[in-house]
Amino acid sequence: MSVTKEVSKIKQTPQSDKIKQKPIVMYEDVHKSFGDVEVLKGINLQIKPGEKLALIGPSGSGKTTIIRMLMTLEEPTEGNIIVGDNNLWKVKKDGEFKRANEKHLRKVRGEIGMVFQHFNLFPHMTILQNCMTGPVQVKKESKASARERSIQMLEKVGLGDKLDNYPNQLSGGQKQRVAMARALVMRPRIMLFDEVTSALDPELVGEVLEVIRDIAQDGEMAMVLVTHEMDFAQEIADRIVFLEDGVIAEEGTPTEVLEQSTNERLQSFLHRFRSSNGN
């Protein structure tokens, strides 16, 4: 685990600055059940503007569900998720909280972007069209400007020469980089990464992490990474949250969580994780 320590200097904003700022996202006692199974049992979590947060934990611990609720792909069973000044899933009407309608969700969701485990590129569009469609359709940006920004973004992720290719002509790593460019051109304030390297062949993981590292260095955007790449989490995260069995079992700086914690479940998770990865 020692490799990552010197790299952690890349974090630009000092921790203390961020703590003073008002959180951009707040989870307040959030529960989520699928049928009879309660996967989240009261999550309280804050994300500050520009903060890089990593969610780790065994599979089935509810990490992905946490960010999917923020992207409005799952509705919490109980509790509040506050984004900026808005309650994401609820609207106050006649003094009572009602379930948010699509219009409200669209308004709040505009701040958030997401990259998926299985890329979810649009197969009927070229790489460039995949990136342009968001700004053009949703932000009503002119085609010329959306095109220019999309090309810039695709060049940034190293795919400037693939503009007119279709997704099925790319490798997994390339697809995932397109997916990141597609999310980034929407200029979200919060970007969610849902196990973005899990579906990749091992030799392609590096190129994707490289791009995330790049994005993280730009600084302004808050990032939430659900990940199994423990070294990478330690390297770029300001804070790590360990989830187990639907609750936050431990949270703190990478050093606190990965090295100093005495939480038994975390220890056993890290132990299992490290031994299965051979280091």
């Binding site: 792909l73 669209r106 969701r109 972007g113 299985h118 949703v138």
Partner: peptide, 27 residues
């Protein structure tokens, strides 16, 4: 059409109509 296509178009904040006309029906 895989669920991921719906989710990706939600993540891009498409309207319901745009999801249908730009993403789902063309596929």
């Amino acid at each position: 059409i895989p669920k991921g296509q719906w989710e990706a178009s939600t993540a891009l904040n498409f309207t319901r109509r745009q999801k249908w006309t730009k993403i789902i029906l063309p596929q």
